[in-house]
Simulated assay, not measured.
Amino acid sequence: MMVESSEYPVRPGTKDCQFYLRTGRCGYGENCCYNHPKEIPTGKINMPKCKGQKRYRTESTSRSSPSPEKREDIEKQSTEAEDILQGEKLREMQENDNDQQKLVEQRERDIERQRREARLSLEQIKQTVHFDEAIRIREILTELGFIITEGDGL
């Protein structure tokens, strides 16, 4: 028989949370980095022996307080989960730093491209202004009565 649960994160491809499989509960809840299958077996779970200790029992067969061995196992799992969580946070921070660096580099490239386009546009405008000014000067000189020939430079 299987029991369905949805309180805990399902992370296919990662190790199953051993504490969750044994007890049906997980102290880390949504923050646990292990997999919590939607369906968990009920009754005894065949767990490997750990350093010659007794096999683990599910909560349904064990009502007394945890044995020292079980407490040690819980502490070990807790430490492992914390280490994994810290590692994930560090990787996430590094990825964020890399993403921010990429954004900065992209922004710098965009600014440089915009500068090049502005310079090109300015160069085109300058040529037009010089040409228009020469025509205007020629028109003014003609209006004033000057005769302009090809060799005058205007």
Rank of each mutant, 00 (worst) to 15 (best):
S5F: 00
S5D: 04
S5Q: 04
S6W: 02
S6E: 07
Y8I: 00
Y8S: 00
P9N: 08
P9T: 11
V10L: 07
V10W: 07
R11S: 01
R11C: 02
R11T: 05
G13S: 04
K15Q: 13
D16Q: 10
D16S: 06
D16I: 11
D16M: 09
C17F: 06
C17Y: 04
Q18L: 14
F19M: 09
F19H: 14
Y20T: 09
T23H: 02
T23D: 01
T23N: 00
G24E: 01
G24P: 08
R25G: 02
C26W: 02
G27I: 15
G27E: 14
Y28W: 15
E30F: 08
N31L: 10
C32V: 02
C32R: 00
C33T: 11
C33L: 07
N35K: 03
H36F: 03
E39P: 06
I40Y: 00
I40K: 00
P41Y: 08
T42E: 15
G43R: 06
G43L: 04
P48T: 08
P48W: 04
K49P: 01
C50W: 10
C50F: 11
K51N: 06
G52V: 03
R55T: 13
T58F: 00
S60Y: 03
S60M: 06
T61F: 15
T61H: 15
T61C: 06
S62T: 02
R63I: 00
S65G: 11
K70Q: 14
K70N: 05
D73F: 03
D73K: 03
E75S: 08
K76V: 03
Q77L: 11
Q77K: 10
S78F: 07
S78I: 02
T79E: 14
A81P: 09
E82F: 11
L85C: 13
Q86C: 10
G87H: 08
G87A: 06
E88V: 04
L90R: 11
L90W: 05
R91V: 04
E92G: 14
E92P: 03
E92H: 15
M93L: 11
M93A: 10
M93H: 11
E95S: 13
N96T: 07
N96M: 09
N96G: 09
D99M: 12
Q100R: 12
V104H: 02
E105I: 10
E105H: 06
Q106R: 11
Q106M: 08
R107F: 14
R107T: 15
I111T: 03
E112N: 10
Q114T: 07
Q114R: 08
Q114A: 13
R115H: 06
R116V: 10
E117G: 07
E117W: 01
E117Y: 01
A118L: 10
S121W: 04
S121I: 08
S121Q: 10
S121F: 09
L122S: 10
L122P: 02
E123K: 13
E123Y: 14
E123P: 07
E123M: 13
I125T: 09
K126I: 15
K126L: 15
K126D: 15
Q127V: 12
T128Y: 06
V129N: 05
V129S: 08
H130D: 11
E133G: 04
I135E: 12
I135Q: 14
I135G: 05
R136A: 14
R136C: 10
I137L: 13
E139K: 12
